[in-house]
């Protein structure tokens, strides 16, 4: 007796439906294995935060933004976050929304205060106020809804990002120099024209110079954005304890070294190609000059940051008090 064809068709259809169901669940149901749970917060300005933005907690990635929805009545945004199921909030937990600034992407961080800071609602609110946190009224009132604050621009973090960017630009310049060497050496340029490579190199170097100039301007004591206002300097002094300035310095020196290497590399290229096409020579001379300037700017910036760091380490009140100076003898002042 053979198999029943009707039963076979039924089982086949059943298997197809089941497979479709499983695929549908995997494709469309967020977190089908229940590894995360959703929490919510409310922002009045999402500053570029969108679904997929990583959510961090004390240095690790805890989850992602699931959705951002505008509430028509309040004009605020309900932001849902998927976080690891094993994460537990404290009695004082809030969300820091990192507004975009010229160098850093928007970010979301969960902050959980401990012990006395989280003991009562009042102590929690006090601590949040101390951290310049202006809370946006929550749209949701359940246990998994946490208040949000907008993070003030973090100058050190921004600078770190900027210097990393500078290092990337310098690396690109290095790659371009190597590419040029290949083209000039007649080993085949892979179809890239000299004009295109020259154009790319010019743009990269212009970006590097602009960036290093901006950084230099920001870090010059008494002149730049950081040191210009007492408020900013005080904030920076406060942050010294939280941010590893030495690592920022290390990155600065690294970037400077890379630019220096580029300069040497381009100098060698200039020497080697002294008799090559005039266009190539001109471009390489220009690149060399740009890198000299970038090196000077980065070096000055490193020196300024070193000075500021050393002075703050020796005297934490330096930023607020300043240094005692005396005018030269016999200076006559205008009335």
């Amino acid at each position: 007796m053979g198999p029943d064809p009707k039963a076979q068709i039924k089982w086949g259809i059943g298997a197809c439906v089941l497979t479709l169901l499983v695929v549908g669940i995997l494709a469309f149901v967020p977190d089908p294995f229940f590894r995360t749970r959703a929490i919510a917060t409310t922002l009045d300005n999402v500053a570029g935060i969108d679904p997929g933005t990583p959510v961090s907690f004390r240095g690790i990635e805890l989850g992602k933004v699931r959705s951002v929805d505008l509430d028509p009545a309040t004009r605020n945004f309900r932001v849902r976050l998927d976080v690891r199921r094993d994460w537990q909030p404290t009695g004082c937990t809030y969300v820091l929304a990192g507004a975009a600034n010229p160098f850093t992407a928007p970010s979301i961080e969960i902050v959980a205060l401990e012990k006395a800071d989280a003991a009562t609602t009042a102590s929690c609110r006090n601590q949040m106020a101390l951290r310049d946190c202006a809370v946006v009224p929550l749209l949701d009132r359940d246990a998994d809804a946490f208040p949000a604050c907008r993070r003030a621009p973090d100058l050190i973090a921004s600078t770190t990002m900027a210097v990393n960017e500078a290092a990337n630009v310098a690396r690109s310049a290095n790659q371009m120099a190597q590419r040029l060497q290949v083209i000039l050496g007649g080993e085949g340029g892979g179809g890239a024209s000299m004009a295109q490579v020259a154009d790319n190199a010019t743009q990269t170097l212009a970006a590097l110079n602009s960036l290093s100039s901006r950084l230099d301007s920001s870090f010059s004591p008494g002149r730049g954005d950081i040191a210009l206002t007492l408020g900013n300097v005080k904030r920076m002094t406060g942050r010294m304890a939280e941010v590893d300035v030495r690592s920022v310095n290390g990155i600065l020196q690294n970037a400077n070294g890379i630019v220096g290497d580029n300069r040497v590399g381009v100098g060698v290229l200039v020497d080697q190609t002294a008799r090559s096409a005039a266009q190539a020579n001109q471009m390489l001379e220009g690149a060399s000059a740009s890198l000299v300037e970038a090196t000077a700017n980065l070096s000055q910036m490193t020196a300024n940051l070193n000075t500021l760091t050393e002075r703050l380490a020796a005297d934490p009140t330096y930023a607020v008090r300043g240094q005692k100076y005396a005018d030269p003898p016999g200076l006559e002042r205008g009335k």
Binding site: L205, N209, N281, Q282, M283, E285, G286, A289, S290, V292, E293, A296
Partner: peptide, 13 residues
């Protein structure tokens, strides 16, 4: 000057 990083016959450092 340095604001115009162009090729030149001589460079002063």
């Amino acid at each position: 000057g340095p604001e115009a990083p162009v090729a030149a016959d001589m460079r002063v450092i």
